[in-house]
């Protein structure tokens, strides 16, 4: 029946949804899958920048929905991976330009073309969010180890359950093992204690992610990046592989050893 439609959402803004979409898409595509990403944040598009494809946009998702171009024309091919595509959001429109049924139709058309459709949901729980989850077969909820982000994630999980989207899986993004150790940050266990859903990955905090986003080079393409490794592991788990969770303390102990030696 073709592609799986995967939506990444969070409730709260700024937790790293767009970065996660770009990295998971890159990781899946680098592994040989055909992937299309849709930027669901109409009016505030970012995914094109994070993927480094900003200057290639001709048509966007609203153009497809309103029939100004064919689907293929709006699929921007990635410059690194031949089977990775981006369908950008319209920047001059807003969320009301798209309806949930438009998204379902669009994704059904995409299912025949690719193996994965990854939708980047906007923050919030309003129209844009509803559009983004309408077509999803699976939903990943992304949160940071922060009280406010976790509460919003809880709200979103509740809505997803009420909409019969099934129980989503959780990505904890930007975990800083040093801060957790000092009890300055929620641990993964604290987060799971409240949200009580299945964990699919923990991404450690990594400055390289910001650099990568600014340059349009997702870190999942960098073999040495720890955050990149975490995203690659999530991509493997999405495909059903059993990948053990990374030892996040490994980096820490080396760091503290170096600091201690001085």
């Amino acid at each position: 029946m073709g592609a799986q439609v995967l939506t990444i959402t969070s409730g709260k803004g700024g937790v790293g949804k767009t970065t996660a979409v770009a990295n998971l898409a890159v990781a899946l595509a680098a592994d040989g899958a055909r992937v299309a990403c849709i930027d669901g944040d109409i009016g505030l598009r970012n995914l094109d920048v994070v993927m480094g494809l900003e200057n290639r946009i001709v048509y966007d998702v609203v153009d497809v929905i309103e029939g100004r171009c064919r689907l293929r024309q709006a699929m921007i091919r990635d410059k690194r991976l031949p089977e990775l595509y981006l369908i950008p959001a319209a920047q001059t429109r807003d969320k009301s330009a798209v309806t949930p049924s438009d998204m379902i139709r669009l994704c059904n058309e995409l299912r025949a073309e690719v193996d994965w459709v990854i939708i980047d949901s906007p923050a919030g729980i309003e129209r844009g969010f509803k559009n983004s989850i309408a077509a999803a077969d699976r939903v990943l909820v992304l949160t940071n180890p922060e009280v406010s982000a976790v509460r919003d994630a809880d709200r979103v999980i509740g809505i997803l359950e009420a909409e019969e989207k099934g129980t989503p899986a959780l990505i904890i993004n930007r975990l800083n093992p040093v801060m957790v150790k000092q009890h300055d940050m929620l641990s993964a266990d604290d987060v799971l204690d409240l949200l009580a859903i299945k964990l699919i990955g923990i991404v450690p905090e990594d400055e390289g992610v910001i650099v990568g986003s600014n340059r349009g080079n997702p870190v999942a393409l960098e073999p040495k990046s720890r955050a990149g490794q975490a995203f690659r592991n999530i991509a493997k788990r999405l495909k059903g592989e059993n990948v053990p969770f990374m030892d996040l303390d490994a980096g820490t102990s080396l760091w503290s050893r170096l600091m201690g030696r001085k």
Binding site: R151, D152, D154, R155, I157, G158, I159, L194, A196
Partner: peptide, 24 residues
């Protein structure tokens, strides 16, 4: 089951929850 943030349960009687009542 657990009541997640944003859920409001109102009842003109007793309420029994087997699960957590999350913040919100």
């Amino acid at each position: 089951r657990t009541l997640r943030s944003g859920t409001r349960v109102e009842f003109a009687g007793n309420v029994i929850v087997v699960g957590d009542v999350n913040p919100g």
